[in-house]
Design a protein around this nucleic acid. Structure first.
Lengths: 358, 358
DNA sequence: GGTGGTGCCGCAAACGGTTACAGACACGCG
DNA sequence: CGCGTGTCTGTAACCGTTTGCGGCACCACC
């Protein structure tokens, strides 16, 4: 037995008819291939110091026996998990879902698993950080999507040996990929101003339980800045904020629109909110692009369908860059954190026009 | 030292200023609490056979030392991972994303982690199944969302001790949550027939790389059936199929619409496709609900905004049920697989009207 | 005072791999 | 022939928990 020739010629794995009877371990493979477990381990993982003939034999035997290494054991011994943990406020939101999709594609290709956690408030964030430190060995690294850490928390995390890249916010201690949200807010507002709008509503984002202040803050800053450049002062009464659900945004839009002094345009901080605004407008029989102009942010899949003018951020590319930073960080060389800022792009559609005659 | 009184009164954990210096292990806690590691293990996990005073002491010391159990070690020893692996064809697609969100919420609450894998073709499916068998100890169970297994593959999986629940398709060996897709297709078609449509296009779904035949097949069957009940025979020429992206659906819709004999209505197998149809209609200056009627399936978040008539399936509820089945299956009692079929609901909006005069 | 429980707790053997270190062997060269 | 060099392989010591089993103290009850 353990005759390699026959084994490798036998065709499909013989498996064990014994059902879940006898999980085959590395020792079984070693015995069958007449080598030590050390050699099997090396051969299977493509490490050097294995003669090519031996490697072939081990591979054949392992396939024959249908051997599957036990992951927890390997992780325990090697001290590495090949897993990265991802935190998102809401896995179902469009931006997060496509981001996770892009990230997953890249990381899977590189041999990593993706552990997904919904982190919607500060308690959960705390829990996530604690649970995913190096010490617990749950993951090799962490990516925080719109789940912000303050500077000291981030430093503490890396000081303990944690590795992380952040998406959507920037911290010195962590590698990050972001966009220029001031520019986003400014671009969105400028297009409205240029069309002649003077009363521009601002639908701000209270991101989860204040997990990421910076995005809405920066976009609002852009909004202010664009006004300032036009020597205008926005009316604070035109500012409301909601979560990123269209249902809530719709209600909030009503607050803005159901008054006599209603704005002629609304800048919504994400497309999902903008959709809510459009629904509210429909409730009031206002024609988008004529009676009410709207601009959003993201370039959501459906934005094109409804003709929404928006500031596109290339989500998939952000995901790819995040993956790249991760892989780099998981490589052998230790380097300081890198910060990548990607471009955004104003996409003009039908939802913006000159102010209607009131 | 190891004086509990002081330790527990000391306030915040002293941690190790040594940075990533000395990971504290269960033995350290045991020493400090003057008990054995066995007792620490039991105390920390709330198992019985620990005196309440001892438990208190251990808990205090563990908190003081900021102890974090090493997961791979615990998993190896216990043979359980508290992780469930989820396979979806495309993590970014709306249905999948909201499903994963719902599932994650439930499972996290129950103390499980979610491992997310994009499984878009048969090779990846094969890999997923192999990698997530019990033997590898990667996950305790698997949920397959529109990633179908045939009966023999499913049986082989459970025979090896694998646990799985499937969403979107049904197999004897696996617990499943589904909807009646024949009814879905029939309902969608009937509403069109009732409005007087006689040439109804069918935009079918080639799900990934034929990972789940049954959904499009059943919906098509419902389409046929509704026609049959009305003593009609659908024109095979009115049948095309694409992936679930609106861009492809748009192109496909053009194939249907750019002819002289074009249909007066289109049944799209998911809302994302229906959006593509609506875009194509816009390209041709066809007015939805008048020149062309459209009905979709899912009740996507944006369907309301664009006034799409659709057959709603309660995604979140499906996710919750799947979680329930999972938890049940992970419980102590072994029971035969359960099959849950949930209701769907026709949601009438503006995208359906009588056929336009041609 | 023996006897049978009962409730806590510790010992030490798993769990299934990885890898530092050293040994074995072949080869080439002075 | 002695020796260094390089390649392959095996031995055995970990990695950090969990848990079956047995011991021990204490109590109640004959």
């Amino acid at each position: 037995m353990a005759d390699l020739g026959e084994a490798s010629l036998a065709g499909r794995p013989v498996a064990q008819a014994a059902g879940a009877g006898s999980p085959v371990r590395i020792g079984d493979v070693a015995r069958a291939a007449e080598v030590s477990t050390a050699t099997v381990s090396r051969a299977l993982r493509g490490l050097p110091h294995v003669a090519s003939a031996t490697r072939q034999r081990v591979l054949a035997v392992a396939a024959e026996l249908d051997y599957r290494p036990n992951l927890p054991a390997a992780r325990l011994a090697a001290g590495t998990t090949n897993t990265i943990a991802v935190a998102v406020p809401d896995p179902a939101a469009w931006f997060n879902a496509t981001m996770v999709g892009a990230l997953g594609r890249e990381m899977t290709a590189a041999g990593y698993d993706l552990l997904l956690s919904g982190v919607a408030n500060l308690d959960e964030r705390q829990r996530f950080i604690e649970l995913n430190g190096v010490r617990s060995g749950r993951s090799d690294a962490v990516v925080l999507i719109d789940v912000a850490l303050d500077e000291t928390a981030a430093e503490a995390f890396v000081a303990q040996g944690g590795r992380a890249v952040s998406v959507g916010f920037r911290t010195q201690a962590l590698s990050s990929v972001t966009v220029d949200n001031v520019a986003v807010g400014s671009d969105a507002t400028q297009i409205l101003l240029r069309h002649g709008h003077r009363r521009i509503g601002l639908l701000s984002l209270d991101s989860g339980d204040s997990l990421n202040f910076s995005i809405p803050a920066h976009r609002a800053q852009g909004y202010e800045q664009a006004h300032a450049e036009a020597r205008l002062t926005p009316d604070p009464a035109l500012r409301v904020s909601t979560s990123n659900s269209w249902a809530e945004a719709r209600r909030a839009a009503h607050v803005l629109l159901d008054t006599s002094e209603r704005p002629s345009a609304i800048f919504a901080m994400c497309d999902e909110q903008a959709f809510g605004v459009m629904l509210a407008a429909r409730d009031l029989d206002l024609c988008i692009g004529e009676d009410l102009s709207v601009v959003g942010v993201d370039d959501h899949d459906q934005s094109r369908l409804v003709g929404l003018t928006t500031v596109r951020q290339h989500v998939a590319r952000q995901g790819a860059v995040a993956a790249e930073l991760l892989l780099h960080m998981l490589g052998p060389s230790v380097e300081p954190p890198q910060h990548v800022q990607l471009d955004t792009e104003l996409i003009i559609r039908d939802s913006v026009g000159p102010p209607g005659v009131d």
